[in-house]
Each structure stands twice: as structure tokens, then as C-alpha cells.
Design a protein around this nucleic acid. Structure first.
Lengths: 347, 347
DNA sequence: CTGAAAGCGCTAACAT
DNA sequence: ATGTTAGCGCTTTCAG
């Protein structure tokens, strides 16, 4: 089948995209003039300008981004590596990053690492080979080899929600410790004294969140059990099983993230307890889902919009040759919904 | 601040990426030889090969994808336009498309149209300018201007979950009518006779789903009320308000998608009715969320993996110059969970 | 105001 | 087995 072939009439665009030379020929000028006119940088006689614009329009000419990138040594593209696009936190971040990038005139090459460090590294190289102007990494954790690569990355890199301790790679993080503290204080204020934290040891920011919880708990005479799991609903279920076994009297749970919190609610309910009457649960992230579950989840919200904005802003600065460090932690805020309530009366 | 400047020793990579010429010089050969060796297409003396590989490694040479694209006239990139990345259905699709594209050796440029037709068009042009090798559009609906653009797109395009009636653009869709029928028959089999459908008129595939529902209902002596709204939780709430007002005795609801179904459950509950005891609800899509809500949602699952696979497969075929039509509808399957149950006894 | 020409980094004939 | 060269499509001095 040669289904693609169509009869071509007079001035119609050729099969493969017209080039600047085609336009130049049709307008009876040089390619330099076409380039100038199309760039909008005046300096061309109105009549000439007219002819060029006209030819371009007739031919349906669109400059090749590829050729332009080669010449200009910039692709106007940023790479974005996320740990797992199917975790509802990331679409929000992707959106924020893409919006910010678009606003700055950049496109985004999305790379979903699927929680696989080797894919992460492969993507890093892919992006470098494609000469993106910068890459933002939103990864829960970073392997050794990725860190090594990043240490001498040939392109500007920013980290979102994570950092590489040894290096100078700019990064931004929410106030994770503050968030953990906030969540815990909320529970404490409601009278809870037997608390549990659900953590996800593989995630870089989990430690800070847990530290915040510990910090808050240390004041009042309260107890804290800790459970571990993956940062998923299933992981939250597993972690909750642990803490409920270790400390059956638990009345308040603060989870590493909303997914784990949802898992916690399921297990709590499966154990015959009610949320929030018997056990209160608070999450982290405020994913869209949080307000949709029953009861709606009390959670610590982070601003993905801010993160995306900062990441792109930092990258565009790097493109301009400016250097800068990492800002302080991004403020978080507690969103109180239905999954937390007064502690049940002491038995 | 000139923070980027570092002292350079002997053989270290230059500030800006080394080119093939650098490698050639260091290895004492021509660029052609370097290109051959690196391409792995034999025809080079082992010793030479060795020297080239060595030089490349020492310099940290990585071929420029941009230059290669210009020369080879292919970017090994596909564009992916989605209606709204924050709608949980799309991350799944994004993942499927990206996986398939990666497997075929392509990267994916993600474009989130944010439900805005003009952005959609802008993206189409952006992708064309960047000379992507193909684009997959996953849009709920397409405006006139986009359709016009698509009709003579300069690059292969495939549509996922939608089609442009007049044209020959290859597209793939789930068996929407079949899904609507399946959902309805499930309710009918449970004894429901006062049914309601929640539809999202703006979405192209909504009509087919509704037709499927109507089709199933027409057999038994059953009644059907129809409510309209956006394909979101809020839209589902609005639509449910309508049908409950119009037909208070409704016991079974089939929603356009899971989000609307969740909205329906909320309104049903808010009205004092229980799910599924008083009213059964079935959704469409089987987003991750579906199994997490309370009660878990009965829904019609579509295979995003299949869709992604087909889309990429079709695009790579087009790249190879092959032509082909659209396949038949993709099968869907009913996933029965807790939101549906026997119809309550007649009053 | 406009054109000629160089060159971005790479590959692929076409020599040798 | 390897080198020379042209050229992908564009921008940008440098001349005129």
C-alpha cells in the first residue's frame, strides 16, 4: 500500500516539510532574510516582509525545531523524571512543572522511572543525549549510581522532594519535619496519647517526617509505635497491622502519605474499630483522593504548584548562567477533615 | 557569581559537551571512523576500534541527539496529548503509552491540554515544529480547528478513545456501547428496574456508553432517567441530583466514568440512602481509586495497556511507511465490587 | 536593507 | 580499513 501518496498541485506543500530555502525561493529572497523576517527582528523592507510572510503561509512553513536547536544550542526542553506517575501525588506535580515550563517557553519530556533506579539512570542519559536544557527529578530516593551521575551532570539538574547530601545540587523540599509535627500536634490537641507513625523507610523524606512526629510526641507524656511499609495503600495496611499488634490501644495514626493513610483506615475498620471514633488518621500530600474517601482524610498539604514553579525558575536561571543555592523548606499546611476527632475516653 | 567555572586538567572533558570531532582527534582518526565504531557497524580494525572507544570513554562523549535527528530526519520521539493529567484515568494511559514507546525506542513528549482546546492546538503545532515522529491524542473531545489541523497533519497521528468522524485518522476505542450494556445488564440481573444513567455530553465517547445503556434497558420493562454533568466527581454529584429529583425511586445508577460514580455515591449517601442497599452504582474505567473508595466501586474496566500498545504500534508502523486502518473496539470487562447489590424489595 | 557563507554535530556516500 | 566531503535546516556575522 502506498496510501500516503497524493497528487500534488501547483503551489502545494511538498511531501516532506518545506524548509526555509523553499520559502526563500518562493519569496525571491535569501534564507537570511526569511530568517530575519520570521524572527520578527525588523530590519526588512515592508514589501519584502510581506512577500516572505506570504510565501511562508502559502507553503505552510514551520521552522524545524531540530535545526534550530542544533544551531542555537538549546532545545527549549526540560526533562522531568518522576518515580511513579501512577502515584496520585505525581500527576499534580507533573502538571505544576509542565505549567511552569510552558509559561517559560519550554516543553517537557516526561520520564516515568517506575520505581526502578536503573531506569532512572537510563533516563538521565537519554535526557542528556537529547541535550535538554535541564532536568527536574522528582524521586523518592536516589541510588548511588544516579547520585554519582548527578554529581557531574552535563546539564543543570534540580531535585524536588529529595536531596543528595554530599553534593551541591539545588533541591527543594516541603517542610517535612514541620508537617510531621503539625499532624502530631493536631492529634495531641484532640487528646490522643497512644500514637503510631507509619513510615516508608525507602523514601528519602520519610525520615524527616518521622522526626517531626517524634519531636512533637516527646513533649507530652505520649507513646509512639512505629510501623514500616511501602508508600502505598498496601504498605499502609501492612504498617498498620504492625502497630496495632504492637500497641493495641493506639488511637491516633500519622501516616507517611495519603496512600498509607488510606491503607490504615481500611485496616482499622477491618479490625472492628471506627474512624475517627476509635482511631484518628492523618495523611500527608493532600492528593485529590484525600477528600473523596470516607471519611475524608485529614492531611498535611504540600504545594506542588510552588515546587514546580521553583524547579523551573531555578532551571531557567541556570540556563541564563546564574547560579544559586537551595531555598529553605516549603511551608506545608494542615487540612482538617473527617478522619480525625477527639480521642475516645480512657478505658 | 561564576560558580560554574572549574579548573580543568589535561584530558578532562571541555565545558561544553565533547563532539565527535574531539573524539576523532584524541583517537587520531576521522570522524567517520568514530561514527562507524560507535554505531557498532563493524568494518574497523580492532586496534582502531579500541582507540576510539577509549577516547570516547575518556572524554565522556555522548552523541548529540539533536545533530543526529537533523541528519537522520527522525527524532525518535512521540508526542502525547492528554486532556487532563489530573484525571486518574490518564496517568494510567500515560504509563501505558510511555512503556510501549520506550520499548520501541522512543521517548515521549507529554502535553497536558488542561481541557482547553486552544492549548490542544498549540501543542499540536509545538509537536509538529519539533518534528516528533508521531503523536497520540487522548482527548475526550476535539474542537473544529483541531480536527481541521489533524485532517492534514504533517505527522502521523493516532487517536485514543475518540475519533474524528469525517477523516481517516486511525483511532482506537474501547467497546463503549458494550460497556454501557454490560453495566446495565448487571443491574438488571440484580433485579433493578428503575435505572438512571449519568452522562457527560461534552465527551465524545459518552454517547456510545449511553446508547449501550439504553439498548440494555429497552428489553425488560425498565425505566431510565438520564442526568448530565462534567466527567468529574462534582459533575457526578450534579447529575445525580437531577436523576434523583426526576425519579426518586431510582435503585441503580450507571455512570459515565468512575469519577462521576463516586460523585453519585456521595449524593446518594447524602440523601439518606445507602450504597448498595438502597441504590447500586456502577462506574467506568476502573481507575486505581475505584477499589479504594467505600464501598469499592463496581465498574467497567478498559485496558489502557492495550490502548497504549496499539497506539505506539500504529505509529511505528506509520514511521516505517506502512498504512493501516483502525481496529475494532477494544473489549471491556465488568469488575464487580461492593457498590452494586440486589435491588431492594418493591415498596 | 539584503545576500553570501560559515558552521552547529552528526552520518553516509564515495573515494582511496 | 579509513578518510574526505556533502549536507540535514537553521541563524548569524560580515560584506556590500
Amino acid at each position: 500500500m502506498t496510501g500516503q501518496v497524493r497528487p500534488v498541485a501547483g503551489d502545494l506543500p511538498p511531501a516532506s516539510s518545506p524548509t526555509i530555502a523553499d520559502v526563500a525561493r518562493h519569496a525571491g529572497v535569501s534564507t537570511a532574510t526569511v530568517s530575519r523576517v520570521l524572527a520578527g527582528l525588523g530590519g526588512a523592507a515592508p514589501a519584502t516582509s510581506e512577500r516572505v510572510l506570504d510565501a511562508a503561509r502559502r507553503l505552510g512553513y514551520r521552522p524545524s525545531g531540530v535545526a534550530r536547536s542544533l544551531k542555537l544550542r538549546t532545545t527549549r526542553t526540560f526533562g522531568l523524571i518522576v518515580t511513579d506517575i501512577e502515584n496520585p501525588f505525581f500527576p499534580q506535580l507533573v502538571r505544576a512543572v509542565e505549567d511552569a515550563a510552558n509559561a517559560a517557553g519550554y516543553a517537557v519530556l516526561l520520564c516515568n522511572a517506575v520505581d526502578d533506579p536503573s531506569r532512572e539512570l537510563a533516563y538521565l542519559e537519554l535526557l542528556a543525549d537529547r541535550r535538554v536544557d535541564g532536568v527536574v527529578i522528582a524521586a523518592a530516593s536516589l541510588g548511588r549510581r544516579q547520585q554519582a551521575w548527578l554529581a557531574e551532570a552535563p546539564v543543570p539538574v534540580v531535585l524536588v522532594n529529595g536531596s543528595v547530601p554530599g553534593t551541591r545540587i539545588p533541591s527543594i523540599e516541603s517542610d517535612n519535619a514541620g508537617g510531621g509535627r503539625l499532624a502530631t500536634e493536631h492529634l495531641l490537641a484532640l487528646g490522643h496519647r497512644r500514637l503510631a507513625a507509619l513510615t516508608a523507610p525507602r523514601n528519602a523524606d520519610a525520615a524527616a517526617r518521622l522526626a517531626g512526629v517524634r519531636d512533637a510526641v516527646s513533649g507530652p507524656a505520649a507513646e509512639l509505635a512505629v510501623g514500616e511499609g511501602d508508600p502505598t495503600v498496601a504498605g499502609g495496611e501492612a504498617a498498620t497491622d504492625q502497630v496495632l499488634a504492637a500497641q493495641p490501644g493506639t488511637t491516633g495514626i500519622v501516616a507517611y502519605n495519603d496512600l498509607m493513610a488510606i491503607g490504615a483506615m481500611r485496616v482499622v475498620r477491618a479490625s472492628g474499630r471506627r474512624v475517627p471514633d476509635d482511631v484518628s488518621v492523618v495523611g500527608f500530600d493532600d492528593i485529590g483522593l484525600a477528600s473523596l474517601v470516607e471519611p475524608p482524610l485529614t492531611t498535611v498539604a504540600q504545594s506542588t504548584v510552588e515546587m514546580g514553579r521553583w524547579a523551573i525558575e531555578r532551571l531557567t536561571a541556570a540556563v541564563r548562567g546564574e547560579s544559586a543555592g537551595s531555598p529553605g523548606p516549603l511551608p506545608v499546611r494542615l487540612v482538617v477533615r473527617g478522619s480525625t476527632g477527639l480521642a475516645p475516653p480512657q478505658v
